[in-house]
C-alpha cells in the first residue's frame, strides 16, 4: 500500500489556548476512502485545514505525495482538492465560470471537455449558466465539489458532505463518492453520520477533542468492538443458569424469564454462537418462545469510545 498522506505528531493549539489537534499520527493510503468520524468540535475541520493550508499547525509534520507540506506545498497542493464544510462560493458567479476559474487557479490549462464532463457527472450541466445564488443548497454543494474536482486532484477532502442534506441528496452524494473511488481518487471525508462511514469508508478514524482515538479498517473495527446481543425469552422461568449453557457468555435476567447473550464480534461469530446456544437449550430441554438478536453498529462503538475518551 502506497501512502499518499502522512501526518505525524500533528498538533494545533488555537490562539486562546484551545487544543484542536493533539499529536495526531495518521497515514492515508492511495485509493482508499477514509472517514473521519467525530462529534462537533472534535477537530475534523482543523485537521483538513492543516493539510489544505487554511490552518497553521503548531507542531508536527505533514507529507502529501511524498512532499513536505511546509516546504514543498506547491507541488502537494496541486494534487489536493477541498470541498469545505460551509457553502461558500461567489454567489454572483455563473456555475461554469466558477468551475473554470478553479481549474485555472490551480494552474491547469482550460479544458472545456473536462469541465463539461465534471458538470455532467454532478448533474450541473443544465445549470452551467445559472448564477450560483439561484441554485438549491444541494446543487451549491455540488458546485463546490465540481470546483474541487476541476483540477483533477488525486486526493479529495469532503468536509461533512452530507450535513444538513436530505436523504435523497445524501444518496446522490454516496454515488458521487463511489464514482470518484472507482476513478482512483483517494477520499478523506468527515461526517457525524455513522451509517455514512459504515457505508462508504474502507477505513475509519475516530477523533474526539483533537485526539485520534482509533484508526482501523471498518470491518476490523467492527470485529474488535462489535457485539451481538440476543435476548431469549424462556417458556418457563429458571432459577439458576443451567450448566449445559455455562460455556456461553450468558446471563439470566432478574425474574429468570429472559436469557441474555452478549458476545461475539462484528464478524458474525456472535450469530453463530447464538445458533449454537439455542441448540444447546433444546438439547437441555429448556424451551423458549422468542429470540431477539441485534448486532451493535459502528455507532455504539463510537459512543462507547467517546465515553472512554471522556473518562480519560
Amino acid at each position: 500500500m502506497e501512502p499518499i498522506l502522512e501526518l505525524s505528531g500533528l498538533s494545533k493549539v488555537y490562539p486562546g489556548g484551545l487544543t484542536a489537534l493533539d499529536n495526531v499520527d495518521l497515514t492515508i493510503n492511495k485509493g482508499e476512502v477514509f472517514a473521519l468520524l467525530g462529534p462537533n468540535g472534535a477537530g475534523k475541520t482543523t485537521l483538513i485545514g492543516a493539510v489544505c493550508g487554511l490552518v497553521r499547525p503548531t507542531s508536527g509534520s505533514i507529507r502529501a505525495f511524498g512532499h513536505d507540506l511546509a516546504s514543498d506545498w506547491r507541488r502537494a497542493r496541486n494534487r489536493i482538492g477541498l470541498v469545505p464544510q460551509e457553502l461558500s462560493t461567489d454567489m454572483f458567479e455563473p456555475v461554469h465560470r466558477a468551475v473554470s476559474y478553479s481549474r485555472g487557479l490551480f494552474g491547469l490549462a482550460p479544458d472545456r471537455d473536462r469541465i463539461e464532463e465534471i458538470l455532467r457527472s454532478l448533474s450541473l450541466w443544465d445549470k452551467r449558466d445559472e448564477r450560483i445564488m439561484a441554485l438549491s443548497g444541494g446543487m451549491k454543494r455540488r458546485v463546490l465539489i465540481a470546483k474541487a474536482l476541476a483540477h483533477e486532484p488525486d486526493l479529495l477532502f469532503l468536509d461533512e458532505p452530507t450535513a444538513g442534506v436530505d436523504v435523497e441528496l445524501r444518496k446522490g452524494m454516496w454515488a458521487i463518492v463511489d464514482t470518484m473511488r472507482e476513478r482512483g481518487v483517494t477520499i478523506i471525508l468527515t461526517t457525524h453520520y455513522i451509517e455514512e462511514a459504515e457505508l462508504m469508508a474502507d477505513r475509519v478514524g475516530i477523533i474526539n477533542r483533537g485526539k485520534l482515538l482509533m484508526v482501523d479498517q471498518k470491518d476490523a473495527m467492527m470485529a474488535r468492538l462489535g457485539r451481538t446481543e440476543a435476548h431469549i425469552t424462556l417458556a418457563r422461568p429458571l432459577s439458576a443458569l443451567p450448566s449445559e449453557i455455562a460455556r456461553f457468555p450468558v446471563e439470566l435476567e432478574p425474574g429468570g424469564e429472559v436469557l441474555c447473550y452478549r458476545g461475539g464480534d462484528g464478524t458474525g461469530k456472535g450469530k453463530a454462537e447464538v445458533a449454537a446456544l439455542t441448540k444447546a437449550l433444546i438439547a437441555a430441554d429448556i424451551d423458549y418462545v422468542g429470540i431477539d438478536t441485534r448486532e451493535s453498529s459502528l455507532e455504539e462503538i463510537f459512543v462507547s469510545l467517546l465515553g472512554e475518551g471522556k473518562a480519560a
Binding site: C52, G53, L54, W73, R74, R75, A76, R77, N78, I80, L82, P84, E86, S88, T89, D90, S102, L105, F106, G107, K147
Partner: peptide
C-alpha cells in the same frame, strides 16, 4: 468574510 478565500489559500499559489 464569506469564506470563499479557502480556495485561494488551498491553491498552489503564493
Amino acid at each position: 468574510f464569506t469564506g470563499t478565500i479557502y480556495e485561494l489559500l488551498s491553491a498552489p499559489v503564493g
